[in-house]
Design a protein around this nucleic acid. Structure first.
Lengths: 329, 329
DNA sequence: CTGTTAGCGCGTTCAA
DNA sequence: TTGAACGCGCTAACAG
């Protein structure tokens, strides 16, 4: 310890923390010693003693997914401004891994946890929440614990997409959605059905495909909806769809890869923006989520909860934007 | 403390760590108490005592940049396997911020630091390195400290790109590079000149533009190189380029946005792969970096250094891949 | 203005 | 098989 350099322990602490009450002579001596010994305060020890961590934990599906990477970026920006650092980890859609990663983070006693839930329940976090850990769920709600929630306005996004297609004369609008285990997938397909009804279009479940996006599955669905290949029934009378909504970026990307091989030009709107989407011909019209807004909203919820830890669970919806680029005319 | 539930302090420690030497009766009682009280071991306190952190720090230009996000993903996968968590932060190309973020991480005493340098020197890390912190520089070398380094094979990538263009008959190959302050930008343009020479093509510096990528700057450069607009001199005699190499993804994206507005079809190869690059028409031929390989190599360097901390500084080059999609015929 | 004492939650050492 | 004491590096609460 730098106390070797003249003075006593606590004085070093004072200098390091910029506390008042240190004589100019001692201050200079201590600073000198700090430089010479390359002293750096140990934040872990400080945390152990003082209680505050200066650390935020964030668990998402995949830190390389552009959506979550953008949320992480916004969170890190705010955290850095407040002098906090961010621990981040991926679940890779594995409930067991969500639990492992979240608990590994909690063992470091972060100030808060931001979590994109994938497991059915987050009750494994009960002791932590009970002990005062603020949790914010993003993208999907958490279950089994008290947590604030930040979600995209899935309903508004789908409504805008359907309205746009209808205004361009489309009435047979197909829908490729994800596995209904996924919360957002459920919200979105419900919104699709409701939006059709709003425009007086009778829903035709033969136009709706809901499954985890595999290339084969999507090829099959596209063949059906566009009226190619062997039609298993249902579409024969009404004819193929003229427009398609793809309910997340994985589905959209796969459809884009397969569409050029298909004869008919079909209108397309994807949920989630994609890099270079404006450079496709025609440009891809998308429902864009506001990742930065989600990240910032999460930080704001944490901020207010810091002020009053006994707040009830709150839910924030972040607006989506329909970006019109031409693929849905 | 769970010692309330029958036994004494140390026994709890033994149970939590799975150490032998606990009677079955006490073990059951302690486990019961652990569940009831929701006890979780405090990893920070453990670290303070034992020295090992179980934490990795990673500082990159931007965690939302697909290249660094993919590296982070690979790092996090390996770290999780080894029971470590990852702190991550962005420099946003600000040397001051690099220093702030890196030192904030170091204050938490991580087991290692992975850093994409942006400042001219990392000598601010001298005390940490002296104290035994292993540092791995990625994307660019570090300066002023001992650090292992993982770099992409920029030279090989550019050579392959030039060879591909030459084999398709191109001899007037333009080059849009980044600001020469950037290490990779310097390596790449040198490789471009060398590759041309290998093919017996006299370099023409009028075909080379090196500047931070702004839309205006790139529009200006494109106008020059493609023989449009007012030619300030130099190109008049030799005519426009027939092919273009764009030296990073930001330049590539901006060129792609502007190219459709230009009359001539120009061959194009970009450094860095882009999402949806295969869906453009024609598909974009790129020099792809192996982000996952970079992340894994960094972790391997750390692993070996853990075994022998007194290793000299090592440098690893990760191969790049020319992905041919049609834009460079 | 400066120093002393105590203890954050844990693991290590040694004794019971 | 179990426990008491000590210290990791730091800060809070008091002295001097």
């Amino acid at each position: 310890m730098a106390a070797q350099a003249g003075v006593a322990l606590k004085t070093v602490s004072r200098v390091v923390n910029g506390e008042p009450g240190v004589g100019p002579g001692t201050l200079a001596r201590v600073e000198q010693a700090i430089i010479e010994l390359g002293y750096r305060r140990n934040e872990s020890a400080r945390q152990l003693r003082s209680g505050r961590a200066g650390t935020l934990a964030m668990v998402v599906r995949d830190i390389a997914d552009p959506f979550f990477a953008a949320i992480g970026r916004a969170v890190e920006m705010t955290a850095h401004r407040d002098g906090q650092v961010v621990m981040i980890g991926s679940t890779h859609e594995d409930p067991k891994r969500e639990r492992e990663v979240a608990l590994a983070f909690c063992a470091r006693r972060p100030d808060a946890l931001i979590l994109a839930p994938i497991a059915d329940s987050q009750d494994y976090l009960h002791p932590e929440v009970e002990a005062g850990l603020p949790v914010v769920a993003i993208d999907r709600p958490a279950h089994g614990i008290l947590a604030d929630t930040v979600l995209s306005d899935n309903v508004g996004g789908i409504r805008a997409a359907v309205a746009h297609l209808v205004s361009h004369g489309h009435r047979r609008i197909g829908y490729l959605g994800d596995d209904q285990m996924v919360y957002t997938a459920r919200e979105r397909v419900v919104a699709y059905r409701a939006a059709l009804a709003e425009h007086g279009i009778a829903g035709d479940e033969a136009l709706v495909r809901l499954a985890a996006p595999t290339p084969e599955g999507i090829a099959h669905s596209l063949g059906d909806l566009l009226g190619l290949g062997p039609v298993p029934g249902g579409l024969a009378g009404a004819g193929p769809v003229t427009a398609l909504i793809t309910a997340n970026n994985r589905i959209t990307a796969e459809v884009l890869r397969q569409l050029p091989n298909l004869p008919r030009r079909t209108a397309l709107i994807g949920f989630d923006d994609l890099e270079l989407a404006d450079l496709l011909v025609p440009g891809l019209t998308v429902i864009a989520q506001d990742a930065e807004g989600i990240g910032r909203a999460a930080m704001e919820l944490l901020d207010t909860r810091l002020t009053d830890p006994r707040l009830p669970a709150r839910e924030v919806r972040i607006p989506t934007t329909l970006i019109i680029r031409g693929s849905a005319e």
